[in-house]
Design a protein around this nucleic acid. Structure first.
Length: 196
DNA sequence: AGCACGATTAACT
DNA sequence: GTTAATCGTGCTC
């Protein structure tokens, strides 16, 4: 399987988010390969986007957002959860795609253990859950997903047909003013294909 | 130095 | 449907 290259992540964030649906997120952990197909993603685009962490400028926390595309932006929230993003567009322009849900395809036994024996259907169906299942934390903030030796990257997989894609407002950003609160920048694979 | 809150989850009623 | 958990960050004093 071929890995998605930096030129992919350098594209417009909405296109990248849409195209990421169905692609395979791979996390090599020691001798193991943990992987899942991306079934929900969300775009955060630029300093003008009041729901984007970059809205009030560069800080130590969000620095990776301003960095080159194809790197991870991983941040800590609610005092307990790590969330994984892929940095997009040109270096200096803060934009990213939040990975919100996966369908596990490899290393499921390990994911169950990392998720403390929870049922398979809730292993990776949320942004904080999938980082737990794939053992992704702040150590991956700023990580280059396109490096030859990367242990976290995205592999090309069959694209999801347009008929299976749902568009909606982003989750958990009700604090943001309009129009940002209602931008339909959440992309998800409709139910039936969740079990590929 | 102090404080309010979050791109969430899980365990309640 | 409601709420506790839990702490780094960024803003105010």
């Amino acid at each position: 399987m071929t890995r998605l290259r930096r030129s992919f992540f350098a594209g417009p964030t909405l296109e990248v988010a849409r195209a990421l649906l169905g692609q395979r997120l791979v996390r090599l952990r020691g001798p193991e390969c943990l992987a899942g197909l991306i079934v929900e993603a969300e775009a955060y685009i630029g300093q003008e986007d009041m729901a984007c962490h970059a809205h009030s400028g560069l800080t130590p926390r969000n620095a990776a957002l301003f960095g080159p595309p194809g790197h991870a932006y991983v941040y800590f929230t609610y005092g307990m959860h790590w969330l994984l993003n892929f940095v997009t567009e040109a270096e200096g322009r803060p934009a990213a795609v939040l990975v919100r849900a996966l369908v596990p395809v490899s290393g499921v036994a390990t994911m169950r253990r990392l998720r403390r024996g929870r049922p398979d259907r809730i292993l990776t169906d949320g942004p904080g859950k999938l980082t737990q299942a794939l053992d992704i934390d702040g150590d991956f903030n700023g990580y280059d997903l396109c490096a030859a030796t990367a242990r976290l990257f995205v592999e090309a997989a069959p694209p999801v047909p347009e008929s299976a894609v749902g568009y909606g407002p982003r989750v958990g950003v009700n604090y943001a003013p309009e129009p940002w609160k209602s931008k339909p920048w959440n992309f998800k694979v409709n139910g039936d294909l969740d079990v590929i």
